[in-house]
């Protein structure tokens, strides 16, 4: 039972992460893969505040999320100057740079990780209560993103994703939208990290590396980029699948690479066979087709 509840906590955290990543990458078209570093910032900041300053855990969780939100400027400001492949490179640099700092500071527990983080709640029903809490937070995250992308602001996000130059030519400031998307998305990732830290009471730098970026990307692509429910479906699928594999009883030396192979195969398969993801519909209705529609559109216009 405890195992099942722990898997459900992981699902909830991944739903928050994938949903917030989808806001930036899917809806905003901002090719940043540094999302896990905001997950790390939330986890470490909240954990350190609770350990060293004895700040109450609920408050430290909120501060951790706030710090992640503020530090999102580290990626949103470069996006003023670079986009596409260059933003991917800049975001990887940001992610690896912060991870390097965490890995080498004694204060953060260095490579060994941060231990003895105070838990949010205790008692015999601890996990069940936490599952309910994370379910509410995850539902709020999905609803918040759904609300942001609806209406006038959502259409402005779509227009910016379609074309920044045309968007600016109408007197609209793309940078404001980018800053807002990065801040909200990163704040949500920070919240997920803080919740993780105060449930498992232990975090290590290796949890927030490129592999986590790849896992989140897989969740968004498989579920359906730029859709409301896609990241939720992707997170549930991609969290339960590796757990299911453990029941095969394979040796660890095979299990770890197998997980990587599954992620890679899923991403490539969906890119070719179903770019709109599991939940994406027609063009403009989500998925990578909507994501890349402007690129295809521009290519067609140039060819005409």
């Amino acid at each position: 039972m405890e195992y099942l509840l722990t898997v459900m906590v992981l699902i909830g955290i991944n739903v928050i992460l994938a949903t917030s990543f989808n806001l930036i990458l899917g809806y905003g078209g901002l090719m940043s893969v540094a999302h896990p570093i905001f997950y790390a910032i939330g986890a470490y900041c909240s954990g350190l505040l609770a350990i060293h300053l004895q700040i109450p855990v609920p408050l430290s969780i909120l501060i951790g999320a706030g710090i992640a939100m503020v530090l999102s400027f580290g990626v949103s400001l470069p996006s003023l100057r670079v986009s596409g492949d260059y933003l991917v490179i800049a975001s990887i640099g940001f992610q690896l740079g912060i991870l390097h700092v965490i890995n080498n500071l004694e204060f953060t527990g260095a490579a060994g990780g941060l231990t003895n983080i105070p838990v949010l709640n205790e008692g015999p029903s601890r996990s069940l209560v936490f599952v309910l809490l994370i379910a509410v937070v995850a539902a709020c995250a999905v609803m918040l993103v759904g609300w942001i992308v609806e209406g006038d602001y959502g259409r402005a996000i779509t227009a910016m994703r379609n074309d920044e130059e045309a968007f600016s030519a109408l007197g609209r400031n793309a940078m404001n939208i980018k800053i807002v998307l990065f801040a909200i998305g990163s704040g949500m990732a920070g919240l997920a990290g803080a919740l993780y830290a105060h449930y498992f009471a232990y975090v290590t730098p290796e949890q927030f590396g490129i592999f986590t970026s790849a896992a989140l990307l897989t969740m968004v692509v498989v579920g359906g980029a730029a859709t409301t429910w896609g990241p939720l479906v992707g997170a549930v699928l991609l969290t339960t699948l590796p757990q299911a594999i453990t029941f095969l009883g394979l040796p660890v030396s095979i299990m770890a690479p197998l997980q990587g192979v599954i992620y890679t195969t899923l991403v490539i398969s969906f890119l070719f066979a179903r770019p709109q993801g599991l939940t994406g519909g027609t063009r403009g209705g989500g998925g990578l087709e909507a994501w890349s529609a402007s690129a295809a559109f521009r290519a067609r216009r140039r060819a005409e």
């Binding site: 779509t158 227009a159 994703r161 030519a169 609209r172 909507a290 216009r301 140039r302």
Partner: peptide, 18 residues
């Protein structure tokens, strides 16, 4: 602009509202 001057994923009216 020469190309990239409308938003392909939005309807005509949504374009004009933007």
């Amino acid at each position: 602009p020469q190309v990239q001057n409308v938003f392909p994923n939005l309807t005509v009216e949504q374009n004009l509202h933007i």
